[in-house]
Design a protein around this nucleic acid. Sequence first.
DNA 1: CCCCTCAGTGTAAGCGCATACATTTACAAA
DNA 2: TTTGTAAATGTATGCGCTTACACTGAGGGG
Lengths: 365, 365
Amino acid sequence: MKPPTVYDVAERAGVSIATVSRVLRSPDRVRPDTAARVEAAVRELGYVPSGAARGLAERRTGVLGLYLPGFDAIEDLSEIELPETGGTDIVTDLGKTADDHIADLYFDEVVRGAELEAWRRGYALMVAVGRGSNSLQTFTDMAGRVDGLIVLARAVPDAVLKPLAARIPVVVLSSRGDYEEFDRVSVSNREGMAALTDHVLSRTDRPLVYLGGPEESPDARDRRRGVRDALEKHGRAEDMRWISDTFTRETGRRVGRELADLADAGGELPGAVLCGNDQMALGVLDEFAAAGIEVPGRVLVSGFDGIPAAALSSPRLSTVRQPIEDLGRAAIALLDERFQEPAGEPRGVRLPVSVLLRESTEPAR
Amino acid sequence: MKPPTVYDVAERAGVSIATVSRVLRSPDRVRPDTAARVEAAVRELGYVPSGAARGLAERRTGVLGLYLPGFDAIEDLSEIELPETGGTDIVTDLGKTADDHIADLYFDEVVRGAELEAWRRGYALMVAVGRGSNSLQTFTDMAGRVDGLIVLARAVPDAVLKPLAARIPVVVLSSRGDYEEFDRVSVSNREGMAALTDHVLSRTDRPLVYLGGPEESPDARDRRRGVRDALEKHGRAEDMRWISDTFTRETGRRVGRELADLADAGGELPGAVLCGNDQMALGVLDEFAAAGIEVPGRVLVSGFDGIPAAALSSPRLSTVRQPIEDLGRAAIALLDERFQEPAGEPRGVRLPVSVLLRESTEPAR
DNA sequence: CCCCTCAGTGTAAGCGCATACATTTACAAA
DNA sequence: TTTGTAAATGTATGCGCTTACACTGAGGGG
């Protein structure tokens, strides 16, 4: 059963296809009674205009794209079952469940922000994710379908991104300093971390530990710089032991245990453990709690990101909240702006962060 | 600057447009050396195939759609600011923050599930949301752009949905019994609530209160039926006081306060307060805690949905976890299945729920 | 040496719509 | 009635791609 087209509608209504098109797009340019006939035909045939044909003729689609690099969660997804009739599964859940979920992904909030802002502005949003070897295929596929594109830094080779940006507006979500030839949005990683560190330094005179992310991550680098900024400001540049590792809770646990063991063996605890993200900090807290080391009593701990779990830990974690959802929103806003003003200098937007001071860095008086 | 087309590439490579198209779509049907020339031209020109033109010629787009009814959160969204340079905002956050966030929206998880499954199967997902008066416009716009469509029950008038379903596969996310002429997926609301109620009835002999959602919500209706099923099974059909109101935490607080006041005035507390969703139950817990009424010591409380907050309350809430993310995933799977098997009876999938028994219904021995 | 086959390539016809431009109609003024 | 003008409608082209079909030339079998 072939879907009806303008031609079918036109024939049924006894008009030309041009009139059908007008009724749909600028109804006031057509006489009310003919419009009514056309609308009736549309209804009777269940006609739905083809987006592809419209896009082709109009040279715009009304769709914005968001492209993310693949992540393991997708690869690991198992086949879903489709039962005709569901049942009920009774689970006695009296233990503690961590529920380390996809929901914690950074992406997730970016996507949500982009969705909200796109919808608000009357665009539809298409989200695609690179998967394995043919991820470039996925990318160009998407690029060919949208009026503008948001891309996470490093998700796509520059050699592909650069020429594309000459064709359609592209916004990159990057760290500062990266991708300066594109429109881009980033957050104040460095300043935020500097402010938090500044606070911690005012609370303890003892030497510190910084547990940061991998060297090659631009975010990690920026945060480390923020720490250094604050140290220099206080003239305590030498007061820090630097550790770099993956951004995981497990890493935090490992380091936390190590420090606890050290203290156990008669060593001195650092004045504070500053962490490059919240997951790490939570890992540190896990182990300190297990070893009976009071936070913030004996040592301060801080994180970065402002994930929900950081507000639920005990003690609650001082951290820097990134406006991740706003990142997505700002990117869409920037795209929309480019449609109004196609030419011009690339524009960089840097979103402010909030330093959240909570109990984990607030020593009892 | 007009984007390059197949013609430009063909000219540059000294071949015909058919050959260009072949290189892109079935590379093994052209000689390796010509393919190489074409690929070089593609790269030099930064050519990206137009999705619109492809879609038109191929009569398929590789995109699936998800359509949601509008919600207030979008309307209320304020304009986002785009600062060139971000700052740092220092917030001393030593109080309790509720963070009642969009993240708690039911939709959110559906969207995520659909995204994951679509990506996994190599489709892109387009998500659109009806907004105000022109929401129908948005809907048909989207319908014209996708190979298949997922729609939330009641988001679109049947008069529109019905003819559309004859053109492209449509899956409806509905409560049981609804939309039987469509492919659809739902969850076992009724059975889940029956099982949880059954458990609660085995824990208390005193009269109960059921605080359910609005009469007109099919979900609310299904859950209420589940409660009734369990009551009848236990021969305690008369043991329940029924309340219907909006699905909000505030409603829960109101009812909780009312019950607390009653108890204060010498009345008897019910054996349990069963709630139609977790938000309500949390509201009840809020007020019981404020009034010093121990849960589960003096009264049991249960919820429905299995939202994250239900695992973090004190006491943790017994509830029925809906596999909301799976709802989205199953819908995509169903669509994909329809592509293989276009005809056939409409298929209904009902997903199982999990009854999570936690402390709020577990009286101390 | 001719004819057939087949791989490789080109030609051209849509796909369904928007729209510039041409034509017709309706109506008012002359 | 004629003419002028604006509103309403129709005609025809092109948007960029895929693909059926036609064509070419090279190699193999007779």
